[in-house]
Design a protein around this nucleic acid. Structure first.
Lengths: 128, 128
DNA sequence: GCTAAAAGTTAGGCAAACTTAAATTATGAA
DNA sequence: TTCATAATTTAAGTTTGCCTAACTTTTAGC
């Protein structure tokens, strides 16, 4: 129904990081994003240019980064995927929290809608 | 312990495809690989050059492609991952066979050793 | 209010994994 | 046996996502 699929996994990571970094101050800084994702500043600048052109963020030069409605919606979706997958890996399989988090970060970008839906059902069923 | 990690997910896909295509005739053709992976012939040629240099395949020009010992070992490992993940998605989550296969193909390249080990344990426990 | 350090951007490059287009080699049917 | 077609390779280029180096802007301490 929605064709948000012009966005890459990497860009999803940036949106997710911006959402997380915005919690404190209501906006993110390039440095925050860089730290969260473990990349160098020019990589962040490049990604922000892409996200800006896609209408997913707002960005004051040398300043604050905020999500647009569309950007926030995607970030929310990605964060939900991340949470469910991580919970499964750690809570059900018994993977260590750190590894679960790292793997969730990768899996969240490659999983199909069908599989995610089924995983959600599974986790609902296994919730005490 | 093993540092096979010079190989990318894409190259793992090629090794897996070569292994699958070799079952019939004992060797693969570029066309078989192309069909299995859904890429164009020059992409296969390029990948074969990389795998050849890495000592993972043998390749007669304009002819047969076969796996070396090292290449076959990696292919076997990847196929095992694929099988376990696909079995989990379909058998446990109830994902359709086609989607399970496609998702397994992606997940097999991003999953950590720890998570895979835990998934294997889980599947062993859930085997009737 | 000036200036050094921190934060951010721009420029240029590289590697991976594709692609299209053109050239080359193999193969099979007449 | 020759020659058209299928299979393969080579050449050249694109996109994505990262990097280093160099430059610019902002910010804080004095």
């Amino acid at each position: 129904m929605k064709q948000n699929k012009n966005i890459t996994g990497s860009m999803e990571d940036y949106l997710e990081a911006i959402a997380i970094a915005s919690v404190k101050e209501g906006a993110a800084r390039v440095t925050d994003i860089k730290t969260l994702l473990g990349v160098k500043m020019p990589s962040v600048s490049g990604a922000l240019a892409v996200l800006l052109k896609a209408g997913l963020i707002k960005h004051e030069k040398y300043g604050r980064v905020t999500l647009t409605k569309k950007g926030a919606a995607i970030a929310k979706e990605v964060k939900k995927k991340h949470a469910v997958i991580s919970a499964f890996l750690h809570g059900v399989l018994g993977v260590s929290p750190d590894a679960a988090d790292i793997d969730a970060c990768k899996i969240e970008h490659v999983i199909s809608a069908e599989t995610f839906k089924k995983l959600c059902s599974f986790m609902r069923a296994h919730k005490k």
